[in-house]
Computed example of a mutant assay.
Amino acid sequence: MKKIIIFLSLFVFLSFLIMATSNRSSSSPLNDYAGQFTSDQKEILEEKLRSFKYKTDIPIKLITTSENDGKSTEELLNDNYDAFLSNKRFKGNGILILFDRDAQIHMIKAEGIIESIVTEEEILASNNYAFNAGLLFSGSVGTIEFLTKKATAYFEANPQLRPSPGLQDTDYLWALVLTVIVAGWGMGGSSLYSPAYQKNNTVSNDFGTYTLINKQEISD
């Protein structure tokens, strides 16, 4: 019976580990495929994107593309948006900002609760001048700050409408901890301090015979 418990516990442990890793990788808020940002700029943008998600519970992603394989910017936007919101925990709420390097066009797609806060046209217009001037980083920062200001003000006035955050990284961590505890129980506790181990765990040397009892070595 204990072997079954241990096996099931390890299976659950590995399952949660895979899910946590998958969610962490898929939740990266910035994919700069076109190499438009410096390392410092990426760090700033990722911080602002994560801050927006933390304050609003609305997923947001910024993607730059290149090598479009003949697809239009709108097709790229829709393809990336579908992939972005494929995770069920997002529940159809999300914002995708996409910059097509080949066409030099930026587009935004927003669905869910954000549509009650601000329109796609308003988002585009908020920093259109910066994008048109080729200032992709400034335009991206300005857009994220605009969205953050709008959304936080909306949820402060309507807290009951804030989306559910769904499963977070901490939820996976607690699940893993619980699994380890159950596995330990299934093993009957640590064998190192079990009575059977203590009874037979004796070591002899030139100074005498030693037995491990209550985590202490006591000479016979």
Rank of each mutant, 00 (worst) to 15 (best):
F11M: 14
L98Y: 02
R101T: 01
F84D: 02
G35P: 10
G208L: 13
D69L: 12
E111G: 08
V12K: 07
Y210E: 07
N68F: 00
N127P: 01
N127H: 01
S39R: 06
F131E: 05
I123L: 09
P159T: 06
N158G: 08
L30M: 09
I95G: 11
K2V: 00
T64D: 01
Y54N: 13
L30Y: 01
G166D: 05
K91G: 03
E115G: 07
M19E: 06
W185C: 15
M19F: 14
S116C: 00
Q198L: 10
D82R: 14
R89V: 13
S51I: 01
G94W: 01
S39N: 08
K48Q: 06
K109D: 03
A20D: 05
F16G: 06
F131L: 06
L96K: 01
Y33D: 09
W185F: 13
E67S: 10
L136P: 05
P165E: 04
S190P: 11
N87S: 09
T119R: 03
D171T: 07
T56Q: 01
M107K: 15
Y129C: 00
A34F: 00
G92R: 02
V180M: 15
Q36R: 02
L76D: 03
T65M: 13
L212I: 12
G186C: 14
L135D: 03
K53T: 04
N78H: 11
L98M: 10
I113D: 02
L77I: 11
T209P: 11
K42M: 04
V203I: 15
I213N: 13
A103D: 04
S22H: 10
Q36P: 00
S27I: 02
I63N: 02
I58R: 00
F99P: 03
R162K: 15
I213D: 11
A103L: 08
L8I: 14
T148M: 13
D32Q: 06
F99M: 08
N127S: 05
T21I: 11
N127T: 01
S27A: 15
S25L: 14
D206C: 12
Q198I: 07
E67Q: 04
L45I: 12
I18A: 15
D57Y: 09
F90A: 09
Q36G: 06
Y33H: 09
I181D: 07
L212W: 09
Q36C: 08
S194Q: 09
L45T: 04
Y33G: 10
K55N: 15
L136I: 04
F155Y: 15
Y197L: 12
L14G: 12
M187V: 13
A175P: 09
P165M: 12
A196R: 14
